[in-house]
Design a protein around this nucleic acid. Structure first.
Lengths: 347, 347
DNA sequence: GGCTGTGTTGAAAGCGGTGTCAAACGGGGG
DNA sequence: CCCCCGTTTGACACCGCTTTCAACACAGCC
């Protein structure tokens, strides 16, 4: 096996009685070297436990086969899925993933650090939670191949992958108004400035208008995406919400689960007396009774496509910027009260 | 700003009318260079948008300031927390994290790849789901600074961070037998070969013996850690499980949640007629009614300590191997039926 | 035999930094 | 005036690899 001192290409060359050029050729372009020589060199490589030095290699080749993934946070299943999809795709394409997270206060710092070591990374995929001017500017001036997740930077020449939140929410609203026959819909969102909540609320308003349903101002709530607060709110209001054709559109599964639990505890039957739908299709959606009708947001796919786009750009830097829009998928389960059709309930 | 061609240290030197040595000194050891010169060089660096090439730098310094994190999988909150803790600690110490996952079939391949590029990584933290001989061997022969998570490799000179699963499970069992007065305990585990399940089952047996409680063979089940299967099992058995002083010890929160739901649906009151406890303290634990008594496993801390250990070893390769054992924390909530004491329920 | 082509190899020039060493400079003391 | 010494600077030798480019051997051809 290998000794403890690092083995260089010169050591291999000496042992195999060839020049370092030949060793290098065996490593990179085997067909250029005579078979007998090649076998001898390969044997020497094995004997010495030689591994090429990636720095030296990268210095010549100007590629590290590493790409960066910069996320706003790493907490929870949401980001976990992005990472998972991105990692799988990166491996598939022969790249490794360098992970970093930039919380809001910290993000410019993280971006700068990522840029600083830019010569070590072949490209970067970035997801930002909010698009401040400073970030916009940093992204626009980015020298490296870049792919932006779930946001678009105006006038930047970069690739991006977005999820059509609005479309998914519209599909959900149409499902509950048409298939399930809801006529009064309570909206429970996250914070008013949250981009996802905004998109879902817009869809809510749009479909209310489409279906000529009245907008009751008191029926729109803004919470914090947490189970507990949704449970508390519902525990208080659920009796006044209940009624035939009444339903709650919660902006995520966690709040929807809280509402289902509170309703059940208060003796309000779901979905008969009050229907409920969620959003995201996290594991929680299948753990309520009845299971939640929700919208699956393809996070893993988003990560994967971003990496794919990024690697394409690395290979072909001059290619015009691409924008991929991913469609969320309606997952119809029992909680919305639609008749029998468990469309993709087992998916 | 920078032109599109890469700017090298020579460009900066020429622009500042100094030698490249001086530029290098400004970059690394500012105090060795005259202030007027330094200002001129710094100006040139800014004007040109110069960034040092990390490959060239690494080639001399033999460090990349990157460490690898190799996990069995990336799915779910469990790994998400490890990654989060590891990333935060790495950032803290000036390192970046390179992520990889090695599913079971694939793991040796991933390990080898990680080793192949070993000259690019300063060290690696590895978590393995099962310790096969092949993996054991690969780890033992690892040439790079290495830290093993949640497992120990016999006779290897490497650092490790483990969680004292057994201890946590014992604490939980003692809590339910002493504080909550359980006298018959149904154990619902994951697969029989799963290391975590094994540790928890051992604790179960140990405390049964301590407390002179009978071991009923039919009361030990092996499922798959999933909500659905636990729900299904409990739906069938819950009436026969119910009784005063009876309780279920599920090996994770998800199965515990399924059992609580099935019991409630069957009209069995939790915890009065059947108490339930889980394990892991995931978000689910606070979403059941009543909330679950469980054991918090400090995943984020494990990730962080592993990175810390790894970086220490990188700095001081000859240091003797360290082993850190992390204690899980008992989280007492209502589902176990212990009188009033909500120890750290709000934590 | 001389010429052209093909297969195989080695010497050497980078790639872009860091570190060593010696030179240049200037000031103070003898 | 010369010597010594501290400060500041530049020349240059690496680090380990890839990649020309030329050399060489040997074949087939005129």
């Amino acid at each position: 096996m290998a000794g403890s001192m690092p083995v260089s290409i010169a050591d291999v060359a000496k042992k195999a009685r060839v020049s370092i050029s030949t060793v290098s050729r065996v490593l990179n372009r085997r067909q250029l070297v005579n078979e007998k020589t090649r076998v001898r060199v390969e044997q020497a490589i094995r004997d010495l436990g030689y591994r090429p030095n990636a720095f030296a290699r990268g210095l010549m080749l100007r590629r590290s086969e590493m790409i960066g993934l910069l996320l706003p946070d790493l907490h929870g299943e949401f980001y976990s899925e992005i990472i998972r999809g991105a990692n799988a795709q990166a491996r598939e394409l022969g790249y490794n993933l360098v992970l970093s997270s930039a919380r809001d206060g910290d993000d410019s710092h993280a971006l700068l650090r990522a840029m600083q070591q830019r010569t070590l990374l072949d490209g970067v995929a970035v997801m930002v939670s909010e698009l401040t001017d400073r970030i916009q500017e940093a992204l626009a001036g980015f020298a490296l191949p870049l792919c932006v997740l779930d946001a678009e930077v105006d006038g930047s020449p970069h690739d991006s992958v977005v999820i059509d939140q609005r479309q998914g929410a519209v599909a959900l609203m149409r499902h509950v108004t048409q298939r399930a026959g809801w006529r009064r819909i309570i909206f429970v969102g996250g914070h008013e400035t949250n981009v996802d909540t905004i998109a879902r609320l817009e869809a809510y308003l749009q479909v209310l208008a489409e279906r000529d349903l009245p907008l009751v101002p008191g029926d729109v709530y803004h919470l914090d995406y947490q189970y507990d607060t949704a449970y508390a709110l519902a525990a208080e209001r659920v009796r006044s919400w209940a009624g035939p054709g009444h339903g709650v559109f919660a902006a995520n599964d966690e709040m929807a689960a809280g509402i289902v639990a509170a309703a059940t505890a208060a003796g309000v039957a779901v979905p008969q007396e009050l229907a409920v739908v969620g959003f995201d299709d996290t594991r929680i959606a299948r753990m309520t009774r009845p299971p939640l009708t929700t919208v699956r947001v393809p996070m893993a796919k988003m990560g994967a496509r971003a990496v794919e786009l990024l690697c394409q750009r690395i290979a072909e830097p001059q290619r015009p910027p691409t924008r991929i829009s991913l469609q969320p998928e309606l997952i119809a389960r029992e909680s919305c009260g639609a008749p029998g059709v468990r469309l993709r309930a087992q998916a």
